[in-house]
Nucleic acid binder design. Structure first.
Lengths: 186, 186
DNA sequence: GTCCTATATAGGACATATCATATATATGTC
DNA sequence: GACATATATATGATATGTCCTATATAGGAC
């Protein structure tokens, strides 16, 4: 499972708590292509510990809840190394909006265009959010990790850009659509 | 849930069995953006019937297993109409390969390039599969359903095309990557 | 004779993901 | 005083999705 291996990946860089993983790792750097729920992160850490791929120490804190700091084990490093060279399956796309559009033939054109506009606004916001993420320009780059992070961000930006172009072309196509057949009662 | 509404969408066009839905509907037209497992389709039909959105009749067959033919109810049509004008959330992307690439910094460049090549081959195959799907050209088109189906297919083709361009650029970027830091034992 | 495919439905088991809530303390805001 | 936010972990319940298997008959391939 990719969530387990993403956690191993982060833990290989440094020891972290479940809270760190959620707020500093997942929500920031990989939310784009692997969003993760807080509860799922904690339960996956439990499972990783059972499997011997990570270990934890309780760090007692005053004034705050205690932290459970996880670090990767040798077995965990081996598992990560194995997974990192394993060919990955293509992503499974599930797009509610495409389902909607596929079955939208009975709707008036104006309604379809409204739905398209709403998607355009949402994807514009997403693209804008990606573009705000500061990563130093490539020329400055002598850090492999940073360069790879940039590649994944670039994928997000291209994906949203492509989606927006398609949405605008789809709107144009909807304006050229033949009229609906009249239903009884209309 | 989109699966329920996709089923309602197909049943609005005509009565169908679970088997029809799997083999004639999902696997052919919407597998691209909403793949569906056979067991899940049957269980969702049960639930739709409980909710009163579909009804079924058992059709006795000789020489073959009996068919349970589902049709949509008025309540089902109303639910579909409601859902069709409800703004849909952005799709959630979970891409194992991007997770892999994100954590690939310790791998030798050649290994990363191999992984990219493997993804390129897979996406090329997917693109090729999409391009084989015959849909009449737009000029011939006076069918709203067909036009909308074409839009969703176009999305698939653009998506794969974009992905391939990114993969090739990513390979070029990997060739420009700074050298790895030597690990102990290497 | 055995195996595979097609037609057809269905359940068990499991994996994965989400949502809500509980607990506990400190700090800041209205 | 009430409420929200940050820090931190954890569980229950539920939703969603996948995999495997069972059942039953017919036809074709080897």
């Amino acid at each position: 499972m990719s969530l387990s291996h993403a956690i191993l990946g982060f833990l290989q860089q440094q020891p972290l708590t479940g809270y760190d993983l959620k707020t500093q790792c997942f929500d920031i750097s990989v939310a784009n292509f692997w969003p993760a729920d807080q509860a799922q992160i904690y339960r996956t850490l439990d499972r990783l510990e059972e499997q011997g791929w990570v270990e934890s120490e309780l760090e007692i804190q005053r004034d705050r809840p205690n932290r459970k700091v996880y670090h990767i084990t040798e077995a965990g490093r081996a598992e990560l190394a194995r997974w990192l060279i394993t060919p990955q399956p293509l992503p499974i796309h599930r797009e509610p909006f495409l389902v909607q559009l596929f079955f939208a033939a009975q709707l008036p054109d104006e309604t379809i265009l409204d739905l398209l506009e709403q998607q355009i606004a949402a994807h514009e916001a997403q693209l804008h959010a990606y573009e705000q993420i500061p990563l130093p320009p490539e020329v400055m780059d002598n850090d492999r990790e940073l360069a790879l992070a940039r590649l994944t961000l670039d994928m997000g930006i291209r994906s949203e850009t492509m989606y927006l172009a398609w949405l605008r072309d789809a709107a144009a196509a909807v304006r050229r659509l033949p009229a609906r057949k009249r239903e009884d009662g209309e």
